[in-house]
């Protein structure tokens, strides 16, 4: 019996000359790219997706600016009755921390899981760690980018850095490292639950950290149980490090404590994220 596809060939002679490319095709075969190239590839995709996802990024910038102006407007004259306090300088790190905390590509990761695109990724020979590291590279770039307009805003309202231009760079770097350290939490939630709602609520985890610290008042004015919690809160040391660059200059011990606090958070969050990744990529 005449096969339908043979008949179709008679009716519609093929115009594609494909046999000549067969040899070349066979020469191209899959291989492991290596960890660095995998990270670059995954990061490239994540970086491209940032400007295509502005609806998720603009609010991250609007909220801290709003918070900055409201807090200054409400408390500046009251707080500055005490001598030696520049409340705008005091609040600028808070705005920065609000801007960069919880910013991640975790929602994209959840979408990948829900659309099975994540299956396509783990079906490839890509290094599993690179799947997360690539996203984090993009996150770091984004949090640094989000820091810049807030710092410029600080300059506009008259904040000056005692630590000079290098201090400004250090300020942005510390903010970026903090933002990166915190991303482990939303990624862990994304990989564990595959739920966008759960990821969106991951910012709520940050609320106890940020409100049980020195966002309104200096640490030496906090006493009792509140003062104890503030003393154990890593965000306290992060804010102290950032503030020191503005108001004091280079105070290495304060900076070291700030970086140490970030490292502690990073160990916990990244540990959770990479364990969740291992669980998600496992074939069980």
């Amino acid at each position: 019996m005449l096969q339908a596809h043979v008949l179709r060939k008679w009716l519609q002679p093929r115009t594609l000359k494909i046999s000549s490319i067969v040899k070349e095709q066979q020469e191209i075969r899959a291989k492991h790219s290596g960890f660095h190239r995998d990270v670059v590839s995954v990061a490239g995709r994540a970086m491209r997706s940032i400007p295509r996802d502005m609806e998720a990024i603009v609010p991250a910038l609007v909220f801290p600016v709003f918070f900055f102006f409201v807090t200054i407007g409400a408390l500046e004259s009251l707080i500055e009755q005490a001598p030696g306090i520049d409340y705008k300088a005091f609040q600028l790190p808070v705005a920065i921390v609000f801007a960069v905390t919880g910013i991640s590509r975790a929602v994209t990761l959840v979408t990948d899981i829900q659309t099975s695109y994540f299956d396509r990724l783990i079906l490839s020979p890509v290094n599993r760690l690179a799947l997360l590291m690539g996203l984090m590279v993009a996150d770091f770039a984004l949090v640094v980018a989000l820091t810049l307009p807030v710092v410029v805003l600080g300059f506009i309202v008259g904040v000056e850095f005692e630590s000079g231009p290098l201090g400004v760079m250090m300020f942005i770097l510390i903010a970026g490292i903090w933002g990166l350290a915190y991303t482990g939490f939303p990624y862990a939630i994304a990989l564990k639950t595959g739920s966008p709602a759960a990821v969106n609520s991951s910012f709520l985890l940050f609320m106890p950290f940020v409100f049980l610290t020195t966002i309104y008042l200096p640490q030496d004015q906090m006493t009792g149980w509140f003062g104890t919690i503030v003393a154990y809160n890593p965000v306290t040391y992060l804010l102290a490090a950032l503030r020191s660059l503005i108001t004091e200059g280079w105070e290495w011990d304060v900076l070291a404590k700030g970086l140490g606090a970030i490292a502690g958070v990073a160990v916990v969050s990244m540990g959770m994220a990479f364990m969740a990744l291992r669980g998600r990529a496992r074939r069980s």
């Binding site: 899959a30 490239g44 997706s49 994209t108 990948d112 659309t115 990724l121 490839s124 020979p125």
Partner: peptide, 21 residues
Amino acid sequence: TLDPKQTGLEFLRLQGYLYGL
């Protein structure tokens, strides 16, 4: 299993890169 926020070209290129091309 596609990524709607990439172009077709970006998607295929990334796929190639992940396989070492």
